[in-house]
């Protein structure tokens, strides 16, 4: 059996446990947004991620997985998730994949090869994630240049024409 097929068959056979493990990890992920997302929402997302990974595994450039990561990165960045939050969510998924493979495939050189293959794909996914976050941030900042100038012009004006501040309302 080809190594990719072994991974696919193993993950497919343990799909439900794998997804449940990732969802539980995300729901217990400290003070992140993931911790306050409903279980079923996680389930749907992780199903889609696993499917993208399995499809990508069959492709020479793993396009399906990378496309999913890019789309996900854009969406999460737009929603205000921190990069490290999304990275950690991917790490939970990667860990669950590794764990499933290690628990279900005899420990030998073939397993090492399989894990190395997965790692290569995961690494490319994480690189994509970071790149998207950087691109989005640069794009937004350049759009906001005028805003920055306007506000600092105002601050300069306020410094040179001091105002009386109003009565204090705080007790």
């Amino acid at each position: 059996m080809n190594p990719k097929d072994i991974i696919i068959a193993t993950l497919d056979a343990n799909r439900q446990e794998l997804i449940a493990a990732v969802c539980c990890a995300l729901q217990n992920y400290g003070n992140s947004r993931y911790a306050v997302i409903a279980f079923e929402q996680h389930q749907d997302r992780e199903e889609a991620l696993l499917q993208a990974f399995l499809t990508g595994l069959k492709q020479p450039d793993h396009d399906a997985y990378l496309a999913y990561v890019v789309k996900n990165a854009r969406q999460r960045s737009g929603e205000g998730y921190a990069l490290e939050e999304v990275q950690q969510a991917l790490i939970y998924f990667e860990e669950a994949v590794w764990k499933t493979l290690v628990e279900n495939i005899p420990c030998n050189l073939q397993l090492v090869d399989l894990l190395a293959l997965c790692t290569r794909i995961f690494t490319r996914g994480r690189d994509c994630l970071a790149q998207i976050y950087l691109q989005e941030s640069i794009a937004i900042r350049s759009e906001l240049d005028d805003l920055h100038d306007k506000f600092y012009k105002y601050l300069h004006h306020a410094e040179t024409t001091p105002s009386e501040e109003g009565p204090v309302s705080n007790s």
Binding site: S77, G78, E79, L147
Partner: peptide, 15 residues
């Protein structure tokens, strides 16, 4: 506001 969450966050950082 939430559709522009990322722009909002960046604007607050910039200012």
């Amino acid at each position: 506001m939430t559709d522009s969450q990322s722009a909002l966050k960046n604007a607050m950082i910039q200012l």
